[in-house]
Amino acid sequence: MNAVVLSPVDLAIAAALIVLLAALSLRLRLGVERQLLVSAARTTVQLLLIALVLKVLFEHAHLHWVALMAAVMILAAGREVSARQKHRLAGWWGYGIGTASMFLSSFTVTVLALLAVIGNDPWYAPQYAIPLLGMVLGNTMNGIALGLDRLTLDAVQRRAVIEARLALGERWQQAIAESRHEAMRVGLIPIINAMAAAGIVSLPGMMTGQILAGAPPLEAAKYQILVMFLIAGGTGLGTLVAVSLAARRLFDERHRLRPERVGSRP
């Protein structure tokens, strides 16, 4: 069973939907037609470009090229995490904590899956390594961004309570405990919900893709389960690490809350 190869005409038909939507937006004065067309164009260009990059990468499957690609993905995800936060740690900390915890969790989880579960030869075969890392990273990024945003927002809003607890001799770990738990929970909820709804409400994108590409549904489901667990592991670990590091950074060595370390974006 082979997948139906899409021709440019096929894609053009789908693109007509976007044009129709843009025309409607213009007609109804929604004002999103420009954004819509630009992002549709970005999707086209970015996906085709990454396909070219992957094609080259697959032909030159050396560890250092795969590692370079992975590094670029992690740095981009780190930038995204820091860009999504309304209140973020000032200086390099906001970027550094998100990127470091993503590196720790996503890398570990992906490498574990490649070595222990998939067991390809070589283990870093980019056909497996890059898509897996991409999926784990994309979700971990979400969890970390949500968790960090919640933590810093909470620290700013509940400053008086945290300081009152410190003033009664609590250690910083106690004074921030509720906010930290809440931030970790918030970071984990999307993946928990996604796992609960998978297959009932929605067919996950990866499984859909595999089925469209001609894979037997049961094989596709098994891969999807693997990926879901990897994503949950990566997101969970990443969020726990990022929120813990950020909570530590909110206080100094004298257990003082340092709200000036959180910068609000204009």
């Binding site: 008086a160 309570v161 300081e163 009152a164 607890r165 410190l166 001799g169 509720e178 004298r254 003082r256």
Partner: peptide
């Protein structure tokens, strides 16, 4: 610091409860 703050206790003008 936590030990110091249990010896030298600040009672703020506005009390906080959690």
């Amino acid at each position: 610091a936590p030990q110091w703050r249990r010896r030298v206790v600040l009672v703020a003008a506005e009390s906080q409860w959690w």
